[in-house]
Each structure stands twice: as structure tokens, then as C-alpha cells.
Design a protein around this nucleic acid. Structure first.
Lengths: 329, 329
DNA sequence: GTGAAAGCGCTAACAC
DNA sequence: GTGTTAGCGCTTTCAC
């Protein structure tokens, strides 16, 4: 493929002029512009980003760190990130870390190697100290999961409040025995949602019963099945359960079906995240919806602002309670 | 951040030697190697991929073209692509085209601009002529959806045969009235699956009834709901339906639930793709499974082989019928 | 085993 | 309005 020299030669101008035409960066006479454009067409020339990026010392690539592609929670966030990125001439590199610290290291190195200009991390298992250190010299933001004292800009919802609202809704529907299926509390959001859960029960002086609280090791459908199975071993059962993620909740409902327990008549279920499939299940799932697209869009803006040296502030977004069949008798 | 010159200076060697240490490319004495490594550590140096890529005139980036992230069919394919890519020091750029030709153009240009070394296209709506032309000078392969006469290497399953097998299974289960929900036949696989469907019915001399064949405009859950709703308007109903994609099938089942029709007792349903959620629905979905991870892994190998100038051949993979509750009385 | 130097393709400062 | 030139950070050929 042709390079800028050949275009310059063909058009009878200097390479500087070709560059000016390409980038519209300073005045070029109509006549020379036409000559250059003609040469570009004739040679089927496309400028090399390799040269441009080296010269500008930027890659215009953003890293998006996630735990796994297959978690549908991320898809809409990624759409938001991508839209803002493309609007601003950036591309995104989706990085799946799979709980693998070595793999995570590869990705974090990419920003040191100038292969990426910034990072949006949605990866709860990330090595916090490394990220913190990297954040001092590079542009990093956290999306939807964050660390309280890390001094890395983040965008998230108020998880405590959202969980509180969800459980309060279950209470106002007449439930007095309310359970919780939660994930590993190493994750800030899991801890916060448990606190919100307890806050609501305390406010209405309802019991917080250990038999009704179960933790999972993962966030998969199967983890939800198993957690509900454990909960159902007890004779004393809650009439409603708050489940920290939709995928877990869908698994829990599957197990309730299997055991012939009617949802919501015998047990109401409320999830969290409003993933696409939560409206497709039978019964459709009541859930807490985060403004996922917006969170992605704004986190992309945050990281690009940081790259350009602009000041960036933490953002707390609004959430919404989506009421569907799994809580409506 | 330090560059190779500063490391060379600090170590008291030439930049050539630093490069040799970095790339292990020719013999360097133990002593100088140590000096260089020490300097690298002291300066916290990381080589710039920008310089390396320009020099080597490669980006080590692969484009993966998909229609939309939110189609869960792709997630496992992408995992396969990513694994092979990372093993071979490539990264992948996921490109969502969203039926937007302009956006597609941006992505196709990236390979001309040297920002990507190759393309794996899984995008059925792609502008075939452009892709064909690009494929003459660049490394492109097609995964799971392909064009018969395009002369672009592809990897896929035998859709006709797979559909035939699925429908034959419905017949052996005793169904004599079998319907089809299909997608736009501009897509080769949609056409092929319809042909397989008809082949099975013809073989057993069963009727192909227009009332039982419905087409959708999209591949979403809601499209499935609506297609089934249309099918149920007719008094004369099939006892089993072959649906071309799991997401559509899950929508169809939702509508059957809503109308109080029991699956599989009153109507058996078989889907296609074996997406993760197809095992989570109630009833769990019988479906045709493609070896998605392997298809991704091998398509990555194909495109990297092409980049390196190796010969590449089309691949037809095996499929599998996964029998679950939606066809088992 | 090591160094000097050319050059990958581009942008931008400077000169005219 | 246009051309000359330096240089972004690296790899590799050619000497020695």
C-alpha cells in the first residue's frame, strides 16, 4: 500500500501538504487540495495509524476490563462506553480477566506499553494495589464497582439505598419473613446491598434470620439454583427473597419451579441488575435497574477527560425499581 | 516514561543491545544482559508498542465484527477467539456494527489503516462486496455465517443437515404437524435451516403448511413472542415447532405460557444455538448446539495463519442435538 | 558480542 | 500557502 511520500510525489507537493489535507489542520489552496485528493484516490491510499500514533504518542484505544463476557450485566454498559468512544475517535478493547491475575497483568501492562490510552475497570477481582499505583500515572476510572479509599474516579449507584428500597417494597407488599441471597462480601456492592437489606428490616422491626440468608461462591445461574436449594432445606421459609443479581435470581426461580413452589404466591423474588433476560423469564423478574448504558457512556467520558488532563469527579447515578410478575400476586 | 535511549545510556550500552535483551533476538553476554535488566528496573521502563508496531508494520490487533454484543450466541465464540489470540500475542477488538453501514465502514477501514492486522466477521448484514474486495488484499475469515461464492475462508456447521436432524427428531417423537419460525432468508443459514426442515418433512411425507411457518424481522425475544402470537391465531395448530434461534424460542415459549398452552405437552419446541440461558428457562429448551468455543478458537487460528501467509481452508464443524424439557413430555 | 545508523509513516515547528 | 526537516521509539542490517 502507498504511503504519504508516494502520494506527495504523485500530486507534486510535499508530504507536509498531504498531511495538511488529511488532517484539515491548516489552510491549503483549493487547487492543491484537489491535486492531493486525486492522488489519494489514484493510489488508493489510506494513512497508517501506526505512523500517526507513534508521532502523536497515543493509541486512541481504551481498555475495558471485565471479569467475563458472559455476564449479561455488562453488555449494555459496554454499548454506552463504545458509543461515547467512537463519537470521540477512540476504540475499545474488551479485556476478559477470568479471575486470572496473570491475564489481568497483561492487560494492565498494555497501558504502560502505550498500547492503550486509558482503562475503564469493571472488574471486581482486580488487584487493587496495582490499579491504584497505575492510576497515579495513567488514566483509569472504575465503573459500577469501586473501592472506597482508592482515590480512583468512579461511577456507580448508591447500592445501600437501592437495596433498602427493594426490600422496603417487599415489606409494603405484606412480607414479614424476608430472605437474602448474596455474593462474596469482598465486593463492596455485595456488602452495601446487605447493609441496605438489614436497614429496611430493622426499620420495620422485622427479624433478620440466618436461615434465610445464603451466600454464593459465584454469580452463575447454577449458583442461584444451589443457594435456593440450601434455603429450602429449612422448614421455616421466608415469603420473599431479595437476590443480589438477576442471574442468581433466575436460578433460584428455576429451583422453586422444580420443587413446585409458586412464584410469587408462595415466595416472591426480587433481583438486581435488570439484565435483558429478566423480562423473558416466567414469571418475569422484579428487579432493581441501574442506568447501565448511561453509566458506560459517562465512564467513557470520564476516562477520555482524564486522558486529556481535564478534572474528573465521581458520579453517583440513579436507579429504578422495575416491578414485574415475580413479586405481584 | 523512559525510552530505550535512556535505558541504553543508564546501562552504558547501545540501544541495539537493549532491543536484543528485550526481544531475546540474538546472543548477549550474561554480564551486559544483567546491566540492561538492572537499568530497565531502575527506570521502570516498558517498551512502547507504538514504536515497535510501526517498525514491524503490524498492530497485532484482530477485528471481530458482530452485529450486536447483546446476542448471547456470540459470547462463547468470542471466548474462543480471544484465547487463541492471546496465546499468540494478538489482541481482539470487538466491533459492534448495529446494522449501521457507516459504522461497518469505519471498522473495515481500520484494517486498511493498519490499525488491525485481520478481521473475523460474524456479521450477517455486512456489505459482502466490500468484504470480498478487502479480502483480496487483507486477512479476513468468516465465522458461523458465510457466503457461498465469496471466496473468503469460513468456518461453520452444516446448517441444512443440523436442521434436518432436529426436525427428524421431532418426527420420531411422534409429531406429525410441525411448524417453523424462521428469520429473514437473506441470511444463508436461515435459508439452509428452512431447507433442512423441509427435507425432513418431505422424507416422512408430512405436510408443509403455510399456517405453521412464520418469519421474524429480528432475532430478539420480542420477535419470538410476536411470531408465536401470529401462529396461535390459527385454529389449526402444529404440535411441535422448530425455531431458528434460542432467543426467539424463549420468546415463543413465553407467549405459549401467557396463553396457557403447555410446553411440551400441547406444543413441543426446539431451538437453535444452545445459548447459556436456554438451560435456565422453564421448561429448559431442547436445541441444536454448535461448538461455539471451538469455532471461535479455530477462526482465530485461520485469520492469524492468513496474516502470516499460510494457506487456509474452509472448515465445517460438527453440531449436537441437546435434548431438554421443551420436547420431553 | 556489540555499536552505528537507517528507516518504518507520520505530524508540526519553522522558514520562506 | 507550501516545503524542509527533525523526531516520535523501536528493530535490524551491516561493520567491527
Amino acid at each position: 500500500m502507498a504511503n504519504i511520500h508516494q502520494v506527495a510525489k504523485q500530486a507534486g507537493v510535499s508530504i507536509a501538504t498531504v498531511s495538511r489535507v488529511l488532517n484539515n489542520t491548516s489552510k491549503v489552496s483549493e487547487k492543491t487540495r484537489h491535486k492531493v485528493e486525486k492522488a489519494i484516490r489514484e493510489l488508493n491510499y489510506a494513512p497508517s495509524m501506526l505512523g500517526r500514533n507513534l508521532r502523536n504518542s497515543e493509541s486512541r484505544l481504551l481498555l475495558v476490563l471485565i471479569h467475563t463476557f458472559s455476564n449479561p450485566y455488562y453488555t449494555e454498559i459496554i454499548n454506552g462506553i463504545e458509543d461515547y468512544a467512537i463519537e470521540n475517535n477512540y476504540n475499545i478493547l474488551l479485556c476478559e480477566t477470568d479471575d486470572n491475575l496473570q491475564r489481568e497483568d497483561i492487560f494492565l501492562h498494555m497501558v504502560r506499553n502505550k498500547l492503550a490510552d486509558g482503562i475503564i475497570s469493571m472488574n471486581p477481582t482486580v488487584h487493587v494495589d496495582k490499579l491504584k499505583e497505575l492510576s497515579e500515572s495513567h488514566s483509569i476510572v472504575l465503573c459500577s464497582d469501586y473501592y472506597e479509599d482508592a482515590n480512583i474516579p468512579y461511577i456507580a449507584i448508591d447500592n445501600t439505598e437501592a437495596a433498602y428500597r427493594a426490600v422496603k417494597y417487599l415489606i409494603t407488599m405484606g412480607n414479614k419473613k424476608i430472605g437474602l441471597i448474596n455474593f462474596n462480601e469482598n465486593l463492596l456492592y455485595a456488602k452495601q446491598r446487605r447493609i441496605g437489606f438489614e436497614k429496611a428490616l430493622n426499620e420495620f422491626q422485622l427479624p433478620i434470620c440466618d436461615e434465610w440468608i445464603h451466600y454464593t461462591d459465584g454469580l452463575s445461574f447454577q449458583d442461584g439454583v444451589e443457594a435456593m436449594r440450601r434455603m429450602l432445606r429449612s422448614k421455616n421459609r421466608p415469603t420473599a427473597v431479595f437476590i443480589i443479581s438477576d442471574t442468581l435470581a433466575i436460578g433460584a426461580i428455576k429451583e422453586l419451579h422444580a420443587q413446585g413452589i409458586k412464584v410469587p404466591q408462595e415466595m416472591a423474588i426480587i433481583g438486581f441488575d435488570n439484565i435483558a433476560f429478566s423480562s423473558m423469564t416466567t414469571p418475569a423478574l422484579t428487579t432493581v435497574s441501574q442506568p447501565k448504558y448511561q453509566m458506560g457512556y459517562r465512564s467513557a467520558k470520564m476516562v477520555i477527560d482524564r486522558i486529556q488532563g481535564l478534572p474528573v469527579e465521581n458520579v453517583i447515578m440513579d436507579y429504578e425499581l422495575i416491578i414485574r410478575e415475580s413479586t405481584l400476586g
